[in-house]
Amino acid sequence: MFSQFKYWKPFIGPFDPCKPIKVKSYSTPPHLYIGFQPPGMKQFSPKDALMHGTLWPQLYSPYPDPNKGVKKD
C-alpha cells in the first residue's frame, strides 16, 4: 500500500552493546506505485513546481519523513 515511508521493528538482541533503535525505516517514494504515468495528473502552480522539483504533487517525495514519529490515526 502506498505510503512514502515504511517502518519496521528490527530484532533487538539481549546483549546488544548500544541503545537500541527500536523502529527502522526505508523509503518507498511515489514513482514506485505509478507504473506508467497517466496523462492529465493534477499539477502544481509553475512557482510551486519549481520549488518542489516536480510539476505533479503526486510525484513529490519529501525527505526526511515530515510525519516521522507521529502516530497514525
Binding site: P10, G13, D16, P17, C18, K19, P20, I21
Partner: peptide, 8 residues
C-alpha cells in the same frame, strides 16, 4: 553489525 546497527 552489532557495533553499528544502533548508531545514529
Amino acid at each position: 553489525y552489532k557495533l553499528t546497527k544502533d548508531a545514529t
